[in-house]
Design a protein around this nucleic acid. Structure first.
Lengths: 227, 227
DNA sequence: CTGCTAACCTATCAGTGATAGGATGGAGCA
DNA sequence: TGCTCCATCCTATCACTGATAGGTTAGCAG
């Protein structure tokens, strides 16, 4: 077995040990300024989460990939959860940008809803790890529990989404009714497909793109104003 | 706080210890026949999962609640995952029953769709732990990976749901189109609300029952035949 | 060159899921 | 009654996890 520089694109069956060693950074790892190292960690963690899942990625795996010791991670993130939250925040910032861009884009208002829906779904599937962290991990168990910071980045993006819907509604391109209810319901409809596709890629979905198109069409018909 | 004999030895931090001791079975725990003990374990695990989450419930907590040693669990379940799967299977059997009952119920076909949707949502929210296990936990990372047994109980229930939709479609109460696509899309719409409510009880949902009613109405309008 | 600080390390902790192998209680038979 | 047997249950221990304590060192400021 040859472990080339940085990280061999490891193959199917990996032993526990290989799983760690395969991602070991080789050679001297230079000391980095805190901010740069932090980004470094997030990048490696993001890649590992996609391969092994969040629970399946240990802090030692991340540290090995970066090329530092496991406790060194704690100079940048107080806990593993803080690391995942930071990853989520970084990803969701791009979703916020996307939604804001669509909201103010120079495209027919009638097609803005579809653009937002498709943008959301594409983001969720592309940034699976970050999306999971924000919306799918086991969070608080009861509604009266302390507010979970995991959700914050996602909630900001949702707020932008909701505002976009409010604008569309004022312009007459969204059906009437409580904007909050509409936003949450539409959110649920989009999230459902994303969550199932992410959590159950082994389900016999058939052609996934066709499935997405089908679902988006139904959603559009359900929430768009029929005017 | 009364800790009865056995092992109060290894104490470290208060809250952590309390979390374990609080559910400790007191008094002599009689030896049980395998099947009875198995049910016993599932009942206690189900309760603990609701309070502390699945990842947050250790095999030692379960064993303490039942009143047996932690390794004794492995006489009944090969792994912790097998235990959660058994729990999921037991719960989903009741969902299958429910759907089958509705499918053959003596109610107007036009209202059968709504009954199935509401039954599904109610089940997901009532049996949160089992629902999470089947549809929300981190499963396989890639679609070509080995089929995950977690999903089996849920998939059987889904098959019943799909068949119910097929029947409704033949009777003209479901919109036309690929039954598979319709079933998966409707599933996604229902799942989205359930998954978000379960994963984010701290989100400012407002009145949850009203939100559910709103979403169900939109779903009905979207998938029901407008005839 | 000296000294300070941020970056980094080794050693170790309690808790986790899981395994190995020994103790025991109670049902069935003499 | 006493004996045997084995399912049930235990203690001891494993490798690994996230996290902490405290010492070491690179590299810049003076």
């Amino acid at each position: 077995m040859t472990v080339s520089a940085k990280d061999s694109a490891n193959t199917a069956e990996v032993s526990e040990v290989d799983r760690v060693v395969a991602h070991r950074a080789t050679g001297v790892v230079p000391r980095l300024k805190s901010a740069a190292r932090r980004e470094d960690i997030l990048n490696h963690a993001s890649r590992l989460f996609l391969s092994y899942g969040i629970a399946g990625t240990s802090t030692r795996m991340i540290a090995n990939a970066v090329g530092i010791s496991q406790p060194s991670l704690y100079a940048h993130f107080a806990t593993k959860e803080a690391l995942t939250n930071a990853l989520s925040a970084r990803a969701f910032a791009s979703l916020e940008d996307l939604i804001a861009k669509i909201r103010s884009a120079d495209i027919p208002a009638a097609t803005r809803l579809e653009a937002m829906i498709r943008g959301y779904i594409r983001f969720a599937l592309d940034q699976g790890a970050a999306y999971r962290i924000a919306f799918m991990l086991e969070g608080p168990m009861h509604e009266d529990e302390a507010f979970n910071p995991n959700i914050l980045p996602g909630m900001q993006a949702f707020a932008g989404f909701r505002d976009g819907l409010a604008l569309l509604q004022r312009e007459g391109h969204l059906r009437e009714g409580s904007t909050d209810h509409l936003a949450q319901s539409l959110w649920a409809s989009m999230h459902g497909l994303c969550a199932l596709l992410l959590a159950r890629p082994d389900f016999p979905w058939g052609e996934i793109e066709a499935m997405i198109d089908f679902h988006v069409e139904i959603i559009l018909a359900a929430y768009q104003n029929k005017a």
